[in-house]
């Protein structure tokens, strides 16, 4: 398992993290070590085994379509780093 610096950078972009050169190096090496460690799973015969996606034996949990009170606009405003015209304000979407 060889991870290039570009691999780590691409993953960091997917996760919206910007990493310094030193971090790219360090996380790259650690990620490689951890991936090497989990390689042992390849020794395990898993053909025909169903993946465990949910632990609960229960199924079909749903709620009635009944309205419940939520938050006020003021409460949303109190949480938000920037708020204008009743809305959460964010920087522009497109890059230059």
């Amino acid at each position: 398992m060889a991870l290039t610096r570009r691999d780590v950078e691409a993953v960091a972009h997917l996760a919206r993290l910007s990493l310094t050169e030193a971090e790219l190096e360090r996380y790259g090496a650690q990620l490689e070590a951890i991936l090497g460690y989990v390689e042992s799973l390849n020794r395990l015969p898993l053909e025909g085994v169903e993946p465990t996606t949910h632990l609960s034996p229960a199924t079909d949990r749903a709620r009635p379509d009944r309205p419940a009170p939520g938050l006020t606009q003021a409460e949303v405003e109190a949480l938000a780093p920037e708020f204008r015209a009743g809305s959460v304000r964010v920087p522009k979407i497109l890059e230059e």
């Binding site: 919206r16 910007s18 780093p81 920037e82 964010v90 920087p91 522009k92 497109l94 890059e95 230059e96």
Partner: peptide
């Protein structure tokens, strides 16, 4: 950084996220 918690300024949304 959009709805709650810490936000650092950024020129666009991706920069702000990162």
């Amino acid at each position: 950084g959009v709805k709650y918690g810490r936000r650092e300024d950024g020129a666009n949304i991706v920069e702000m996220y990162k």
